Amino acid sequence: MMGRARQSYDGVVLTCPISVPYQRYSIDTAHWWIATALRQALKAAGVLPKELDGFSVSSFTLFPDTPVGLTQHLGLSPRWLDIIPMGGASGVVALRRAARAVQAGDADIVACVAGDTNHIDSFRSLLSSFSRFAMDASYPYGYGGPNANFALLTDRYMQEYGATRADFGRICVAQRANALNYPAAIMKKPLTLEAYLEARPIADPIALFDCVMPVAGAEAFLVMTEDDAVRRNLPFARIGGAIERHNAHSEDPIQLRGGWTVDLDQLYGMAGSAPEDMDLVQTYDDYPVISMMQIEDLGFCAKGEGADFLRNKDMTITGDFPHNTNGGQLSAGQAGAAGGFIGLVEALRQVTQQAGPTQVKGARKALVSGFGMINYDRGVCSSAAILEAA
């Protein structure tokens, strides 16, 4: 069912992309990581904490703190406060909410921050209480976590569409090549397709380099009016369009498509552009099959043709289809909910020509997609945005 025409995001911009370098393990709290990213974003904009009137937070490991508690601990007094508990979809969803708040005058400057810590037992603790579905359906049997779930999905995708492990490997190998240019990436060693194919199995058909590595870290950006960004002399990106969709295609027996398919025409329609106009693409990439699924669902090729499409593409920074230009989560690391921000923050750097060693030459339009909250057998949340150079 089509709703009313979507209002544009004219007059609202993104600025001050911040990535706090990731650590494999950390003794610091999520609170510390979020505070560090926030401080850096405000400093970059020349904004005092008391001037910040909007605050959006995404985190899995903030408990027992809350975004409400953070306002007190960090000395903030926002008139607009949000929490986005949507995992890998959270970056674009935070952007959408914040942009509308600024557009409506409910806030002048919104800091969107995602951060998580990674203690030795953080992942086990997260799994044990992730969702009621997971607790009831899998955890009592000693089965838990995304590796096994995405192994089933990957296997079904391969059977359905004829993709091979090498097809997924090309995504991982290209992202590692990109990560070698990104100073903050956790993975520092080159990866060959041969090494990918020979890696130790994790959950058939998934092997070591298909799996995202949990880390500690934080990402942030600011949302404000274009007039404010110009006045502050800040490089900024405009929002061509943005969508989100939850629990799409629930009738599918296994998830081989996501919610992007429902609203894709509106996304490109808002931006007045098409897939071929994008200078780079940042997909949510906890497993390569998910990236391939997004490339299809975002309109670059038909469903099931992702492997064929990518066989003819160079996904590195200097290639004809730059994808996950800082290595994505598969090579830079997954800092919890910040995994939903890493692609968006990198895209903001790209279209404002601030990406440094990962810069795609002449990048003016970037497509970012998010995918989050696997609830036993499928990711429930999906989002996407098009960022444009000023």
Results as ranks from 00 to 15, higher is better:
residue 287 Y to C: 01
residue 238 R to G: 15
residue 220 A to Q: 08
residue 259 G to V: 03
residue 264 L to T: 08
residue 282 Q to V: 06
residue 278 M to T: 07
residue 253 P to I: 09
residue 314 D to G: 08
residue 273 S to D: 10
residue 268 Y to G: 03
residue 278 M to Q: 13
residue 242 A to K: 07
residue 261 T to F: 02
residue 222 L to D: 13
residue 293 M to C: 11
residue 238 R to Y: 11
residue 252 D to S: 13
residue 224 M to Y: 04
residue 236 F to S: 13
residue 226 E to P: 02
residue 279 D to Q: 08
residue 326 N to A: 08
residue 261 T to G: 03
residue 248 A to S: 14
residue 318 T to K: 15
residue 245 R to K: 15
residue 298 L to M: 14
residue 256 L to S: 07
residue 313 K to E: 04
residue 222 L to I: 14
residue 313 K to L: 03
residue 307 A to W: 03
residue 219 E to F: 13
residue 313 K to D: 00
residue 238 R to L: 09
residue 262 V to H: 07
residue 248 A to V: 05
residue 291 S to M: 01
residue 311 R to T: 05
residue 295 I to K: 01
residue 246 H to V: 15
residue 224 M to T: 10
residue 310 L to R: 03
residue 268 Y to R: 12
residue 241 G to E: 02
residue 317 I to D: 04
residue 327 G to L: 02
residue 303 K to N: 13
residue 227 D to R: 14
residue 288 P to D: 01
residue 271 A to V: 10
residue 232 R to V: 06
residue 291 S to T: 15
residue 315 M to F: 02
residue 235 P to N: 06
residue 295 I to A: 00
residue 245 R to Q: 14
residue 252 D to T: 07
residue 305 E to V: 04
residue 302 A to C: 10
residue 317 I to L: 11
residue 324 N to Y: 03
residue 280 L to P: 04
residue 301 C to P: 03
residue 253 P to Y: 13
residue 247 N to I: 14
residue 287 Y to I: 04
residue 295 I to Y: 00
residue 255 Q to L: 08
residue 212 V to F: 12
residue 226 E to L: 01
residue 301 C to E: 00
residue 211 C to A: 14
residue 277 D to F: 13
residue 325 T to S: 04
residue 211 C to P: 02
residue 254 I to W: 11
residue 237 A to M: 11
residue 277 D to W: 10
residue 287 Y to E: 05
residue 283 T to P: 15
residue 303 K to Y: 10
